[in-house]
């Protein structure tokens, strides 16, 4: 059972279906965010529907780009034999 699901997900032939399912999940998440009650909101952004989705996406892009910039441009990433010890 577990094995079948994993094999299904891993099979490149099903990537189109999985993609569609993912888009549905993304859409549903945002839609649900419009429907829930927000009596616990502490800050202004907590009151904006879809804030989580936006912040998650922006965070992801910022983290990847900033990290790669630091890694490549600031000399953090080095060859594997850098320490050579």
């Amino acid at each position: 059972m577990i094995k079948r699901i994993v094999l299904y997900i891993g099979n490149p032939a099903h990537s189109g279906t999985l993609k569609k399912l993912s888009y549905v999940a993304l859409g549903l998440t945002v839609a649900a965010d419009f429907l829930v009650q927000r009596e616990h909101a502490m800050y202004i952004w907590d009151k904006i529907p879809g804030w989580g989705a936006l912040y998650g996406f922006v965070s992801c892009v910022v983290i990847v780009l900033v990290s790669k910039f630091i890694g490549h441009k600031c000399g953090v990433m080095r060859g594997e034999d850098y320490y050579n010890d």
Partner: peptide, 10 residues
């Protein structure tokens, strides 16, 4: 919903 939004859009 906001946690799911953060994670799925990541």
């Amino acid at each position: 919903t906001s946690a799911l939004g953060i994670l799925l859009f990541t």
